[in-house]
Design a binder for these strands. Structure first.
Lengths: 219, 219
DNA sequence: AAATAATATAATATAATTGTGATAAATAAA
DNA sequence: TTTATTTATCACAATTATATTATATTATTT
C-alpha cells in the first residue's frame, strides 16, 4: 500500500512516515500540492494524507485536482477544527479529517480503517490460478498449492504484470533485488519449478525467446 | 444495525437513508422529535442521526428525552456550525456532529466509526481456542490456559488478523511496539511457546516460510 | 539438414530459514 | 533483597530453498 503524505513541514511528514512504515506502508512525500499531483500522476498511490494549509497550492485545490486524475481516498490534516465545516461544504469526498496536533498512532488507525473499507477483496486471478495475497496462498483450480517464497514472488510479479514480457534482468532486480549478482539462468530454474506447480496451467507462463518470460491472460 | 434518521425535510432523510441502505443498515425515519421518541420506544434502535432544528420538538430536547429511555449514540446535524458550542454546552453525550451541507459518504463513515467503538469486542473463537478479551482469558477446549502477556498479545493479534500472513516486522511493531529494536527471531520463540500452550491446536499457527506466521480459520 | 543459439531440465552443492532447547537478562512478585 | 516469572538472545540441528553446473531439448538460422 502506497501512501502519499503532503505537508509543507518536513518534520510532520517525517513523523507520519515513520509510523506508516512500521505497518508496512510505502510512503511518498510531497511538500506542496503541485508536487503531490506529480507524484500521483507517476505512481500508484492508494491513499493521500494532506495538510490543508500549504504554499503554492492549498489542500482543497490539490485534492480537487487529484480527484480528477484518480479517485483516491483522502485524509485531510488541519490546524483548526473550524475548517472542517468548510471542507465538508466542498464535498470533495474526503474520507476522514484529523486536526493538529494529532496522535500518529490514531492517524495510522484511520488510514487502516479507510483502506479496509475501500479494499475490495482483490485477489489476482488468471485462468485457473488464483493468488490470495493477504493469506499468501496460491490456488490452482481452487486447490491450495504450496510454493516456495521465490516461486510465490515470481508468480505474483508475473501475474501483476500480465501480458508484459519481462526480461531476466527485470525479474532478477524486482524479485531477487537490485543487489543480486548471480546468473541469469537462475530465473529459468525457478520458471521450471513454478510451471511444475501450475500443473495443467503450466503454459500460461510463456517463454519469450531472446528476452524473458510473460504470463498471458487472453481475456 | 438499525438507524433512526430524524429530520423534518423528507429529502434529506431520503438521501441519508439511501446511503445507509447501501451499507446494509436498516433505516427508520421520523420527521420530528415526538415521532422519534415513539420509534425509539417501540424499536431496537442502535444509533440516531438527528437534525437540531425541527418543529414540535427540537433536537436538543428530543435527544435528552431519548437518552432517558435508552443510551443510544447520537449524531447531530445542523445548518450552522456555531451551534456546535451550544450543543457541547448541553453535554448530552453526542457522539458526533455534522454540519449541513454534508457529504453522505462522510456521514456513513462516521456512523460506522461510532458503531465500531460502541460495539463490545465479542470473544474470538477459532477451532477449540477462545479468547475472552474482557476477562483476559484464553480457553483451549473450554479449559482455561495460562499465557504470559506476550503470548496473549500474540495470540490475540494473530486471531484478530486470521487468514492474513503477518511478517515478523509487522508482529514486532504491532505487539512489541514500534520502538523495539531487537531480533526478528524473538517472534519465533514466542510462537514456539504459544504453540506449546495450544496443545493439539498448535497447528492452527501456520508458518509462512520466508514471510512470517498466520492463523488459519477454515470456515 | 546441419549448425548455432537459447531454453528446459535434472542433479547437486550451497545457502537460508525455521524449530527448539539452553541460558542470560529483564521484569515483577514476594 | 530474594525469588519467581517472563522475555530475549544465542547456538545448533533439522528442514527447506536456492543457485549453479552440466546436459538435454527445443527453436532458429544458415
Amino acid at each position: 500500500m502506497n501512501i502519499l503524505v503532503v505537508d509543507d513541514e518536513a518534520l510532520i511528514r517525517g513523523v507520519i512516515k515513520e509510523y506508516l512504515i512500521l505497518d508496512d506502508f510505502k510512503v511518498y512525500e510531497a511538500e506542496d500540492g503541485l508536487k503531490a499531483i506529480e507524484i500521483v500522476k507517476n505512481n500508484s498511490i492508494d491513499l493521500v494524507i494532506m495538510d490543508i494549509m500549504m504554499p503554492k497550492m492549498d489542500g482543497y485545490t490539490a485534492c480537487k485536482e487529484i480527484k480528477k486524475i484518480k479517485d483516491i481516498p483522502f485524509i485531510m490534516l488541519s490546524a483548526r477544527s473550524e475548517e472542517y465545516d468548510k471542507l465538508i461544504g466542498f464535498d470533495l469526498g474526503i474520507d476522514d479529517y484529523v486536526t493538529k496536533p494529532f496522535s500518529p498512532k490514531e492517524l495510522v488507525a484511520r488510514v487502516k480503517a479507510i483502506i479496509k473499507r475501500n479494499t475490495k477483496e482483490e485477489s489476482l486471478i488468471i485462468a485457473g490460478i488464483k493468488i490470495d495475497d493477504l493469506a499468501h496462498e496460491v490456488y490452482v483450480d481452487n486447490k491450495l498449492v504450496m510454493l516456495t517464497p521465490k516461486e510465490y514472488d515470481l508468480l505474483k510479479y508475473l501475474m501483476e504484470n500480465k501480458n508484459i514480457a519481462l526480461s531476466r534482468e527485470n525479474l532478477l532486480s524486482n524479485i531477487w533485488g537490485y543487489d543480486f549478482y548471480g546468473d541469469d539462468r537462475t530465473v529459468d530454474t525457478h520458471i521450471k519449478t513454478l510451471r511444475a506447480r501450475l500443473g495443467k496451467y503450466r503454459d500460461i507462463i510463456k517463454t519469450v525467446r531472446g528476452m524473458g518470460y510473460k504470463i498471458e491472460d487472453k481475456r
